[in-house]
Nucleic acid binder design. Structure first.
Lengths: 205, 205
DNA sequence: TGAGGCATGTAACTCGTTACATGATTGT
DNA sequence: ACAATCATGTAACGAGTTACATGCCTCA
């Protein structure tokens, strides 16, 4: 349940209304922990009931400004320092890779090159942000920079992987063409063996 | 809604019961698209109603073996080749990085080194799998290998990043110590400026 | 005076998690 | 006979998404 901690984290920087928080989510956490308006308002309510945040001011248009409480800050620190983060989960693109065998090699190759392009696009956007931002020495700048660098490195590695993977398909296509030719000489039928193997990729968590 | 496609993908390799599918999920997709038993049984029901899968055989203990239909295979191909994959979403560890400022630099550094260790552990597990598997030229081996290589590259990059990030904190700590010293000479008080900046990291999707 | 932005909330739905419940078969 | 494994399902809950509903300010 990390939406809670995302909200607490933002509130730890400064008090904010639900509306403000939505802007912050869209501006700074969109790629890391997206949230919808109804989630944010709901969470603010729960946070208040739990004593982790409180209404610190009332404004125009029914605006309610929330501030983190001492208890909330303690919870945030506890989460950061003592709760083990959960590993990576659910990668749509990678899931597809497992089943690329149902496509033709050409289609599979196209898919992978599409991935390469998409990650390259993302990488470029991150680089632009990096160049345009003025990085200070304050905490937000330091840690924001760290997160951005993570994005830069991951997108770079993903693009490289996707290009490499596309090449692998080419070389397998070539090898298979060879096998088919040799196979015809021996059997008269094409390659079609039912050997099962590999496929697993699990560190038994 | 990719659970559907994960199930279709597994069924495309061979018919299976819900029980079999659970084993496959745990064995080969645990790190990519985990699923629970109740989800799998539920999805098999929906898939059957939708005509994308069908019960192909009945066994002992009420076993029902499901097979993918032509329509299901078409849907799988369509998803693979034509539906654009959604970008990366919700990274617990990275979310924490944004808020590391509420911890002491030492605690933050400890967190990052912990991440480095954890990704290194995962990397080692993947490498072991890679070495122990016998990779053939069949589709499952080829694409399984691709996915594994992805895991290897990502964990490697993550570990490098985490170590780099930990170092950054050290160098900022040093710089800050300097600033504090200089600051004392000028003001008499410690550093405490409210400048907001950076923090954003969003390619306006 | 009207458009655009500020501001909060609810309802209905899907997806995912945990726990419970039950029973049949197989091998020792 | 009894333990392990095969095998299927349901219920309750929490998290996330989409759409709707409403109204107040401010500035041009």
């Amino acid at each position: 349940m990390s939406l809670r901690h995302a909200v607490l984290g933002l509130l730890s920087e400064s008090p904010a209304s639900g509306y403000d928080l939505m802007k912050l989510f869209n501006a700074s956490l969109a790629n890391v922990w997206p949230a919808t308006q109804s989630q944010v308002y709901g969470e603010l309510g729960k946070l208040t009931s739990a004593g982790l945040a409180e209404v610190s001011a009332h404004g125009p248009r029914g605006r309610k400004e929330y501030a983190i409480t001492d208890e909330g800050l303690a919870e945030l620190r506890h989460w950061l320092a003592e709760v083990p983060p959960s590993g990576p989960h659910r990668d749509d693109s990678l899931l597809r890779v497992f089943f690329l065998g149902v496509l033709t090699p050409l289609e599979a190759r196209t898919f992978l090159l599409g991935r390469a392009q998409e990650t390259a696009r993302l990488h470029a956007t991150y680089r632009r942000i990096d160049e345009e931002a003025e990085w200070d020495d304050d905490m937000i700048s330091v840690y924001g920079r760290l997160a951005l660098e993570y994005g830069l490195r991951m997108t770079a590695a993903q693009e490289e992987w996707a290009r490499w993977a596309a090449e692998q398909i080419d070389s397998v296509k070539a090898r298979e063409a060879g096998n088919r030719a040799r196979s015809r000489l021996r059997n008269g039928t094409g390659t079609r063996n039912g050997t099962r193997n590999g496929d697993d990729l699990t560190p038994t968590e």
